[in-house]
Nucleic acid binder design. Structure first.
Length: 585
DNA sequence: GCCGTTTTCGGCCCGACTGTTTTCAGTCG
């Protein structure tokens, strides 16, 4: 799958360079569309090419298919190399800076020879940008701020960080006089794993008052824009927030529009055009007769009304990526997505027996408060000293303790482990001990820098153990901090299907591992899933919605997740491993 | 560069805001 990314990146870069070169926007968009299509492919592009199926991928025609074949055969792409040679390397990265688009990038390069962020920063600081045509001091200052933001991890923050900030802002604005409806929109509503800025939408008959309240909120550190229907601020938390005010008759249209994704919206507007309609943030319109007759709004008050008027059922925000959801909606084949309420228990929680903060009793009580039917204690295994891994003898004692306590905790408490997978794929406890546990999560916590082949066989070997129920955080990534280890995720998914091992969707905000696209691959292949918070305290049990959101982005239904099962069924699944999970339900 | 219940050629999504401007280009979402 690594070639998929390499090809997608080249197509995206070609698009950037063509744009700087002033090419046709339609040609540029063709490359961007193709880049996304390849990026979102759940299959190895080489395999698709081998069976001659490249042009069946939407957005890939004859010319792009040839470029893909060329790259697969030679490792290079002539069109890309030529283009890259005609511009200095790095010029396209200037476009990462807000305010700098293709025209400005070219302007900077032609007049000042700028092609890197460092050069741009130096020129801005020296006051040389303002001397250029159509540039001024304000733009120069904005560029300097933009460079700082790009350097600050590209400006995107983990969903788990942004969600509470957004919730607080929404609650503050909800009580402002004149606010009728309010909702967060944008990528946060789609539960995307990182969030660039917060989009908040309100309806009001007193927009100016709402704008005043927003731009003077105590958590606002800077006002970037202030218009009558749209304002932008920077929050103390370092996030940008945009507020839009619309009339109630347009609320659904605006919610749809500002929720995105951009790609989903483009596809939807194209669909509207084909139906002789026009879709914008104010509604879905039937154009007038062109002789003074006004456009007539056929939908706009609700999102569902917009979709309905386009001949579609309402599409959940998490699916809106133009990755087949519109086609599925049209065919009546949208998944019945899992909901937070479907989760019947926690399967991954740590206690003070290893590196958790709270006791078994406290975790059990917190699980009761969550409304759960069961909770499984999964502390670290003996060799993970840094996390105070539990020695085998102690774990035997914990098994006895939990089983004697269980009746008095008000909830079924299962005893398991998050067992380290050793470098050779063996497990960190003896088989007889693992056999005694209710549930075994196997995870990689050490030796991340193995070869792809070695890591894959290490993990697959662990999954082949009859004792292993769940593969924990399958790729080991930490958002913005650590890349996933090298592993053949397709081989892992296939092993999960073959062995009946569930793949974890780890809901910890810094992990979200599996990620959404891998989740979708897993469920398409028929792998069983589990959503666990990896809680290290009672409060962290509340991360569950992040995991459910990631599952929803992967098109997952409740029946595909083992901890939506009632306890008796879960025990049955845990007791009988191997074979096709779907065949047994 | 892609694509086809308007089309194998001629289309290809829509609007707000800002800055530097005397009427709009560029950027963004």
């Amino acid at each position: 799958m690594t070639q998929n990314r390499a090809i997608a990146q080249r197509f995206a870069l070609i698009a950037d360079l063509l744009e700087i070169g002033g090419e046709s926007v339609f040609r540029i968009n063709a490359y961007r569309r193709a880049a996304r299509a390849i990026e979102g492919l759940s299959e190895d592009v080489a395999a698709v090419a081998a069976r001659g199926g490249l042009t069946e991928i939407p957005g890939i025609g004859k010319a792009l298919a040839e470029k893909i074949v060329e790259f697969l055969a030679t490792g290079t792409m002539r069109a890309y190399e030529d283009l890259a040679a005609s511009f200095p390397p790095g010029l396209a990265t200037l476009m990462l800076v807000p305010e700098v688009g293709p025209k400005t990038a070219l302007l900077l390069h032609e007049h000042l020879g700028i092609s890197t962020l460092d050069e741009l920063e130096a020129a801005s600081a020296a006051g040389r940008i303002r001397e250029l045509p159509r540039m001024g001091q304000r733009t120069e200052e904005a560029i300097l701020r933009g460079i700082a933001m790009v350097r600050r991890q590209a400006g995107r923050r983990p969903l788990g960080f942004a969600l509470p900030v957004a919730a607080e802002l929404v609650e503050r604005l909800r009580v402002v006089p004149g606010v009728k409806q309010i909702s967060a929109a944008g990528s946060i509503r789609r539960m995307k794993e990182t969030v660039g800025d917060l989009d908040i939408l309100v309806t009001s008959r007193a927009p100016a008052r709402v704008m005043d309240a927003f731009t003077t909120s105590p958590e606002v550190s800077e006002v970037l824009e202030r218009g009558s229907t749209r304002s932008s601020v920077v929050l103390d938390a370092g996030l940008q927030a945009d507020l839009r005010v619309v009339e109630p008759a347009a609320y659904g249209a605006a919610l749809q529009y500002f929720t995105g994704s951009k790609e989903h919206n483009v596809a939807l507007r194209e669909r509207a055009v084909r139906a002789g309609l026009k879709l914008n943030e104010y509604g879905l319109w039937r154009p007038g007769d062109g002789r003074g007759g006004d456009d007539r709004r056929v939908a706009g008050r609700t999102e569902a009304g917009i979709y309905r008027a386009l001949g579609l059922p309402w599409i959940p925000p998490e699916l809106r990526e133009d990755q087949g959801e519109i086609e599925a909606a049209e065919a009546g084949r949208l998944p019945r997505l899992i909901e937070v309420e479907d989760i019947r228990g926690e399967v991954h929680a740590h206690t003070s027996w290893s590196d958790g903060a709270d006791s078994v009793e406290e975790i059990a009580a917190a699980a009761v408060a969550m409304g759960y039917e069961y909770v499984c204690i999964t502390d670290h295994s003996q060799s993970l000293k840094i996390a105070r891994g539990v020695p085998a003898a102690d774990l035997r004692d914990h098994i006895r303790q939990v089983r004697s306590l269980s009746d008095r905790l008000g909830i079924a408490v299962l005893i398991g482990t998050e067992c380290d997978i050793s470098a050779d794929g063996t497990l960190d406890y003896p088989d007889d001990l693992l056999a005694d546990l209710d549930l075994v999560i196997a995870s990689v916590h050490t030796r991340f820098r193995m070869s792809r082949e070695a890591m894959t066989s290490r993990i697959v070997r662990a999954m082949e153990s009859e004792h292993v129920d769940i593969l924990g955080h399958p790729t080991g990534r930490l958002l913005g901090a650590r890349d996933p280890y090298e592993v053949d995720i397709e081989a892992v998914v296939d092993a999960a299907v073959r062995t009946g091992t569930a793949l974890e969707i780890n809901a910890a905000p810094e992990r979200l591992d599996l990620k959404d696209t891998d989740v979708r691959l897993a469920r398409e292949r028929g792998a069983r899933l589990a959503i666990g918070t990896d809680a290290h305290s009672c409060a962290q049990l509340r991360y569950m919605p992040l995991g459910v959101g990631t599952a929803r982005r992967g098109w997952v239904e409740a029946r595909e997740v083992i901890n939506t099962l009632p306890l008796a069924s879960l025990r049955e699944v845990l007791g009988h491993r191997g074979g096709n999970p779907r065949g047994r339900r």
